[in-house]
Computed example of a mutant assay.
Amino acid sequence: MVTTGTPSLTRSIPRGMAAGIAGTAVMSAFQQVVEMPITGREASYAPADLAERILPIHPQTQQGRERLNWGTHMALGTLWGSAYGVTTHVGLRGVKAFAVVFPAVYTGDVLLNTVLGLYKPGTWTAQEWAVDLTNKAVQAAATGILNDYLFNKDQEVLPAE
């Protein structure tokens, strides 16, 4: 089967962004239902910490901090999704797209947070690495699957010649 062309960036990036929001929701559900009950880890405020470090936003209440955390969490997921939009544009799907997006975006995430003084990966235990990698791999995989679905759902497919 052959699809009818490569999608434009103006089509593929917004779809990737939508997939990124949904993929972030999947990761959040995974954390709440699977990971945190197993590990006993408390909720993370790393997204809020990042926003407070780089933006002039400093909530005065716990509710405000939780809203900032959730909003930043979704915004970061949207950015991860845009990377999938780019891979769609260049023709990568599935495992190949994951193999490009996950290491690039995860490394960027760890480096940015480390440079900003928010992460200290040199001090993380094996469990902390496993939790971080697993949660973000769930997000990246869910985003990729959803991105592929959004891309493929309205593509005209022609029989192979």
Results as ranks from 00 to 15, higher is better:
residue 70 W to Y: 09
residue 49 D to V: 03
residue 13 I to P: 05
residue 4 T to W: 03
residue 84 Y to Q: 07
residue 122 G to K: 04
residue 98 F to Q: 09
residue 153 K to Y: 07
residue 43 A to V: 07
residue 71 G to A: 07
residue 15 R to P: 05
residue 141 A to C: 12
residue 56 P to V: 09
residue 107 T to P: 15
residue 57 I to F: 03
residue 29 A to M: 14
residue 41 R to V: 04
residue 115 V to G: 14
residue 73 H to C: 05
residue 113 N to Q: 13
residue 141 A to Y: 08
residue 9 L to V: 05
residue 157 V to A: 02
residue 31 Q to E: 15
residue 78 T to E: 01
residue 121 P to I: 10
residue 3 T to Q: 09
residue 8 S to G: 15
residue 30 F to Y: 10
residue 138 V to E: 13
residue 149 Y to D: 02
residue 144 G to R: 10
residue 19 A to M: 05
residue 96 K to Y: 08
residue 23 G to Q: 12
residue 153 K to G: 00
residue 39 T to L: 09
residue 1 M to F: 02
residue 96 K to T: 12
residue 124 W to P: 00
residue 6 T to R: 15
residue 25 A to S: 10
residue 54 I to Y: 03
residue 101 V to A: 14
residue 120 K to T: 11
residue 38 I to N: 03
residue 135 N to Y: 01
residue 117 G to F: 04
residue 48 A to R: 01
residue 139 Q to Y: 07
residue 21 I to S: 10
residue 77 G to D: 02
residue 87 T to E: 14
residue 114 T to S: 15
residue 40 G to D: 01
residue 17 M to H: 03
residue 77 G to W: 02
residue 78 T to V: 04
residue 151 F to T: 12
residue 30 F to G: 03
residue 76 L to S: 12
residue 81 G to F: 06
residue 101 V to K: 13
residue 8 S to V: 00
residue 124 W to N: 07
residue 47 P to Q: 11
residue 76 L to P: 04
residue 150 L to P: 00
residue 80 W to G: 06
residue 145 I to D: 00
residue 2 V to L: 14
residue 104 A to H: 00
residue 111 L to E: 07
residue 41 R to N: 06
residue 159 P to N: 11
residue 111 L to F: 11
residue 139 Q to F: 10
residue 79 L to N: 02
residue 80 W to T: 06
residue 18 A to G: 14
residue 67 R to T: 12
residue 51 A to M: 07
residue 63 Q to H: 05
residue 33 V to N: 02
residue 142 A to R: 08
residue 105 V to Q: 11
residue 140 A to P: 01
residue 60 Q to R: 15
residue 85 G to A: 02
residue 152 N to Y: 06
residue 77 G to Q: 07
residue 96 K to M: 14
residue 23 G to M: 06
residue 4 T to H: 13
residue 147 N to G: 10
residue 8 S to H: 09
residue 120 K to L: 04
residue 58 H to K: 10
residue 6 T to F: 06
residue 44 S to A: 08
residue 22 A to T: 10
residue 44 S to Y: 01
residue 65 R to S: 06
residue 93 R to Y: 01
residue 49 D to W: 02
residue 91 G to D: 08
residue 99 A to G: 14
residue 25 A to R: 03
residue 51 A to C: 04
residue 110 V to T: 13
residue 41 R to H: 08
residue 117 G to A: 03
residue 11 R to I: 07
residue 122 G to E: 10
residue 123 T to N: 13
residue 151 F to L: 09
residue 34 V to Y: 04
residue 143 T to L: 14
residue 43 A to P: 00
residue 110 V to D: 09
residue 83 A to Y: 08
residue 25 A to K: 05
residue 6 T to I: 04
residue 154 D to Y: 09
residue 157 V to I: 15
residue 45 Y to I: 01
residue 27 M to A: 05
residue 155 Q to E: 13
residue 159 P to W: 03
residue 21 I to C: 08
residue 156 E to Q: 13
residue 79 L to Q: 03
residue 30 F to Q: 10
residue 64 G to F: 09
residue 112 L to K: 00
residue 94 G to E: 09
residue 77 G to I: 06
residue 25 A to F: 09
residue 35 E to G: 02
residue 150 L to E: 10
